[in-house]
Design a protein around this nucleic acid. Structure first.
Lengths: 234, 234
DNA sequence: CGCGTGCTTGAACATTATCAAACAGTGTGG
DNA sequence: CCACACTGTTTGATAATGTTCAAGCACGCG
């Protein structure tokens, strides 16, 4: 843990420690309403692949319920999950040409499927919509940069604390508990750890009475302030 | 090193291992030409801060020469560099409202400075420009996701190999050498390592005669194929 | 009730971090 | 022009965090 490079004369001020949820700018409802008519509802069952990396990017999806994961692999099989897609999130927005990652269902999932042609046409027809989605992608980029900080400089314990709070906040801000739709293995591949470390770190938070784990998939925040401190990196 | 979670029935196909440079779509020259007249040239000397995190995002810059770094900090001083900005890169594009990270000069840098108001007006006035910059941000997002994979699942040696190739490719594709404008400390904070590990890993590549290091800042690719294999993760 | 998958726990190991010292390159002043 | 000092880099020895390998456990389902 601890110490990075020495502070520089130009060092910037510290920032909130845990993952920022992708913000949803005001005109979301309006833009969404215009779009909903263009798509069709699809069901993806748990474990199924929705999108294969390198396939031509012919669709955009919006998650309605359930959860998806975006996966990248190394040639020898090492796996990394770049993001979990939860209700309200768009899939395949930031793709030119071919998909850059595989999308799989972590749980049974309902999503709206748009044809990319129609989706782009809609964007071009409405300047407000274009700006809205530009803002969404900017938010995703900022969230990805927060995760770079997490992977590059945070300990296992800090990563887990950040993760639990971020997932909880995306579902409902200031929640006192979360239901995790994904397995320990998925969490490990998202946080750059192993399943054993994920388990041990959860055990440690439980021992310290910062969380309670009544079920494997349910996490109750017993001491949210402590969890936030850990996630922020002290 | 090695093994992540077990392969799943839906596991996706493997992908190129090292950092993908942000792609520059075709109409770049045209869009750039329209913009150049709107900005003024600025010099930022080595070590100076160009942008402070949380300041209102009132400007967009385009790097002409030199190099900048984008920095995020944890409360206790741990530092992470989310990206290096090299000639041709835009700074402050993907920001709504306030800057999300500090920008500092790694070397003496020349950049064009645009007012964000004018920049946005230009984007709105020209649909092609809007799409162009949307594409740029999408490319940045994809590059960030490649770095998540790097930080989450690659060893120190693999990270260094990926880094050297990525920097080299951004300057000129298939180059046989790079001049690194940044210090070991900056490289460490970019790769999520310490300066000692950076140094040792470079030493290892030199010993194995994969690179040559005639000067601290100069890296010659003696065996580019081997470097690519290492960077790709075998 | 028993089996299977996924989760937890334990012990040994590996990689990378930390602490410490030597070294190199650059610029300054004598 | 050389000696010196400063900063950044390299190298070495030790320690820590997280991984790997190996059992056990628990919950859900047939």
């Amino acid at each position: 843990m601890s110490a990075a490079a020495a502070l520089q004369p130009t060092a910037s001020r510290a920032r909130a420690g845990y993952l920022t949820p992708v913000p949803t700018p005001p005109p979301a409802a309006v833009v969404g309403a215009g779009l909903d008519r263009l798509g069709t509802v699809t069901m993806i069952e748990r474990g199924r692949m929705l999108i294969q990396e390198q396939d031509p990017a012919e669709h955009v999806f919006k998650v309605l319920s359930g959860a998806l994961r975006a996966v990248r692999l190394l040639p020898d099989g090492r796996r990394y999950i770049t993001e979990f897609l939860l209700p309200g999130d768009y899939v395949g927005l930031a793709e030119n040409g071919a998909y850059s990652q595989t999308i799989e269902a972590v749980a049974d999932t309902k999503a709206i499927k748009y044809s990319r042609r129609r989706f782009d046409a809609f964007l071009d027809s409405d300047a407000r919509a274009g700006r809205h989605f530009f803002g969404l992608v900017c938010g995703e980029l900022s969230a990805a940069q927060d995760r770079l900080l997490l992977l590059g400089r945070k300990s296992a314990l800090e990563r887990m604390a950040s993760f639990l709070l971020a997932i909880a906040d995306r579902r409902s801000p200031d929640a006192t508990a979360v239901d995790l739709p994904m397995s320990r293995s998925d969490i490990a591949d998202y946080l750059g750890l192993t399943i054993e470390t994920v388990s041990r770190v959860l055990g440690q938070l439980r021992t310290r009475e910062i969380i309670d784990v009544p079920t494997v998939s349910r996490i109750v925040f017993t001491d949210r302030a402590a969890l936030e401190d850990i996630g922020a990196g002290e």
